[in-house]
């Protein structure tokens, strides 16, 4: 199967548990998913940078039907607005969330897709 050549670095980062987004060195704009240039100023000077992994839950839904995935329902899927600006769709840890919650990225063994959970309190790991 063909792979998307513009997202190779994203998936390489994900495999190592690092969340990468594009940053424009010209105007400072962050964008996700990757494009060949900055959508705000059209500069070519876009580079992958490590996102903080922190964000705010913009919306979420608890899915009660099977979509043919490995995970049986119910499970939560949400939109997270990263502190850097871009918004992404991801599975959430657990079912009990509130829009506006602070969340951070998590990684699961053998799964390349980032998930988000409640922002870690200082003592937890």
């Amino acid at each position: 199967m063909d792979h998307d050549p513009l997202t190779t670095w994203f998936w390489q980062g994900a495999a190592e548990g690092v969340l990468l987004v594009q940053r424009c060195e010209e105007c400072g704009h962050h964008q996700f998913y990757p494009r060949p240039f900055c959508l705000r100023c059209e500069s070519d000077r876009v580079v992958p940078i490590e996102a903080s992994g922190a964000g705010t839950l913009y919306s979420f839904t608890v899915v009660h039907v099977s979509t043919g995935l490995d995970v049986p329902p119910p499970y939560a899927v949400g939109l997270v607005t990263l502190d850097e600006g871009p918004r992404l769709l991801a599975r959430l840890v657990g079912l009990d969330h509130t829009i506006g919650d602070r969340v951070t990225v998590r990684w699961r063994d053998g799964n390349p897709h980032p998930v988000f959970g409640p922002a870690a309190r200082p003592a937890s790991r």
């Binding site: 998913y33 839904t61 979509t67 995935l69 995970v71 899927v77 769709l89």
Partner: peptide, 13 residues
């Protein structure tokens, strides 16, 4: 290869 396939489909929405 597709954006939907990479960034939307895997999350089970």
């Amino acid at each position: 290869y597709t954006l939907i396939g990479q960034f939307q489909a895997p999350h089970g929405l």
